[in-house]
Design a protein around this nucleic acid. Structure first.
Lengths: 144, 144
DNA sequence: TGACAAAGTTAGCTATGACTAACTCTGTGG
DNA sequence: CCACAGAGTTAGTCATAGCTAACTTTGTCA
């Protein structure tokens, strides 16, 4: 490999690490909006205490994060009231859920048991590119 | 679903989120030791400046993280000298590389192009359980 | 109707992991 | 043999994301 293409390769990989780090910052938001959407569907409202229980964190942590979601215009909240999603938040929630299900289904198709597949999909889903999602859909025979 | 199994389900999912968060804390360490191992193999030594270039961060950031690796007994370093892995660090590096390659190969087998597969594997590899890795090996016909 | 439990909030702490800027050390080429 | 460029380090800042402890608000039921 030439000197210049070696440098290019190094830069390409660096960009990739940067992409992964960026994905991390969106993960939390995706997990929250998906859960908020679920809770509203299941119980009619999304409360701090329920998010805390389901995420395995304290109410204080949920509060902090919800404030970030509000700042990013993914959610709305009034003091002492339950949390709602903005249209932007809803669309992110649905996109996240679909992606989660696709990843889980691929894992199951590869022979992973359902519970493990669901658990692993939670970590994996945030790092799957559009191209890979398309390949997954094709693999499962769900159109391109 | 009964009340008690609903609660169990909630606890199970909370544990899973906690597991994913814990995985995040090991990701950085895994990326570093893998790169350090690569650099030593390729160039004979692992320098701060090369790690910084390849990870897309500054030298200061690399320094901080290397100190954490030393604290966790994954690496050793003397001031103004290059970085080495402890046996524990080497074993983590090799485990990480194998896992990365396995994930990449599965993605390629599913029809993802090589460059995308390698890029996505970087984010995904840290969230794949033993069970799923075993299923991947079986899927690729590489023994159980 | 008001006490109190449950829910929500706030304040203040920790660690990680990123940054810049300013510094020191190393080692090599003139 | 030493100047200086390049490498490494340190100090100080910021945001995220977690925690506990202490507080306030809400809403229910005796």
């Amino acid at each position: 490999m030439s000197q210049s293409s070696l440098k290019q390769e190094i830069r390409r990989r660096a960009k990739n690490f940067q992409r992964v780090r960026a994905a991390h910052q969106t993960e939390v938001a995706e997990d929250y909006v998906e859960l908020i959407d679920d809770l509203i569907a299941e119980t009619g409202e999304a409360r701090v205490v329920d998010l805390a229980d389901r995420l395995g964190v304290t109410k204080a942590t949920v509060n902090n994060t919800v404030q970030r979601l509000v700042r990013e215009e993914l959610a709305t909240s009034q003091p002492y009231r339950s949390i709602f999603l903005t249209p932007k938040g809803q669309s992110l929630a649905r996109k996240s859920r679909k992606r989660h299900e696709l990843v889980r289904d691929v894992l199951v198709a590869l022979g992973v048991d359902e519970e493990t597949a669901d658990a692993d999909a939670e970590g994996i889903e945030h790092h799957v590119s559009k191209e890979t999602l398309a390949a997954f859909r094709k693999f499962l025979g769900r159109g391109e």
